[in-house]
């Protein structure tokens, strides 16, 4: 029981990270109708930017952890958002009227570019970062097993909740959010009623990348290690989360993220850790086949 609760906490933490990445997939799919295959690598770039920003801050003498973390968050969000913007501008925008699978192929190319760019620039070896946030609370004890909720887990969960709230507000209440929803319904119509579609799409990528960078920072703090390849698996899992929650649905992305996080943690805890990624891919396939509209997605009627 205690073991289970501990896994539940770990799963929700991991799921928060997946959920934040999944929002990027779900938003872009909702609006442009493409799988942004490079989004996982944007997350990886975000983690690297956070790592380097942190090292620079320490060298500059800013060593109060909360302050440093805050600055790192801002810097990494801003720069990762710039990556999101650039990728859309270079690799996707010219393809908006190309053949059906062109954006996906371009996105695969972009994913390879980002991975290898970081590998060339920063080396292929893993980058460790000593734990910055220590401590935590023992929730309860029993059967020689203490259930702990660490401070870093608290930070991750609270930040995720805060970002989700803010983001939901943005989509529901602001002008940008309204434009985004309009574009999701019908790009051509949105353009006709005077919405700057290009700008809205750009901003969608920017926001998605910024959220992915937060996930990158959390990943860095939680695991204390990054390498250039983390984006691939995290990306696939987050995409699975987006599909599971119902692609196009924001709460769906979050719910899907947490479910995937829980499934992965429980699978590793109770079955086999070697096959945990097999489980992730298997879920992806099963969901796509049997539940392609996801939990909260709209059913799709084939247009004949």
């Amino acid at each position: 029981m205690e073991y289970f609760v501990q896994q539940l906490i770990n799963g929700i933490t991991l799921g928060s990270i997946y959920g934040l990445i999944a929002i990027g997939y779900t938003m872009v799919y909702g609006i442009v109708g493409m799988i942004n295959f490079a989004h996982g690598d944007i997350f990886m770039v975000g983690a690297f930017l956070a790592l380097i920003a942190f090292l620079v801050l320490v060298a500059l003498g800013i060593s109060t952890v909360p302050l440093a973390l805050f600055i790192v968050l801002l810097v990494s969000m801003a720069l990762t958002a710039l990556y999101g913007w650039t990728v859309e501008r270079i690799a996707y925008r010219p393809l908006r009227h190309s053949f059906r699978l062109a954006p996906l192929i371009s996105a695969i190319g972009m994913s390879i570019v980002l991975q290898n760019y970081v590998q060339v620039a920063q080396g292929a070896r893993v980058k460790p970062l000593p734990p910055l946030v220590h401590g935590g609370y023992t929730l309860f004890e029993g059967n020689d097993f203490a259930v702990r909720l660490s401070n870093i887990q608290i930070i991750i969960i609270i930040t995720t909740i805060a970002l989700m709230t803010g983001f939901s507000f943005l989509v529901a209440r602001t002008r940008l959010g309204r434009n985004m929803r309009a574009c999701e319904q019908d790009l051509k119509m949105a353009a006709l009623v005077g919405i700057d579609v290009d700008r809205t799409i750009s901003l969608t990528f920017v926001i998605g990348a910024a959220l992915a960078s937060v996930a990158g920072l959390m990943f860095l703090l939680y695991y204390g290690v990054v390498d250039f390849f983390i984006g691939f698996l995290a990306g696939v899992k987050a995409f699975t989360a987006a599909v599971l929650g119902g692609i196009g649905s924001l709460p769906g992305a979050m719910i899907g993220g947490i479910l995937i996080g829980l499934i992965e943690t429980m699978w590793s805890a109770y079955f086999s850790i070697e096959y945990k990624d097999v489980a992730a891919f298997a879920i992806l396939i099963i969901v796509l086949i049997f539940l392609p509209t996801g939990l909260l997605g709209r059913p799709e009627v084939e247009k004949v």
């Binding site: 270079i90 690799a91 010219p94 393809l95 190309s98 053949f99 062109a102 192929i105 371009s106 695969i108 190319g109 972009m110 994913s111 390879i112 570019v113 991975q115 290898n116 760019y117 590998q119 060339v120």
Partner: peptide
């Protein structure tokens, strides 16, 4: 180490300029 980088970039460029 650059070859995969170039290869990815080539993929993007081909889809854009010569789909």
């Amino acid at each position: 180490q650059y070859r995969m980088l170039v290869f990815g970039a080539a993929m993007v460029a081909i889809v854009i300029y010569r789909p």
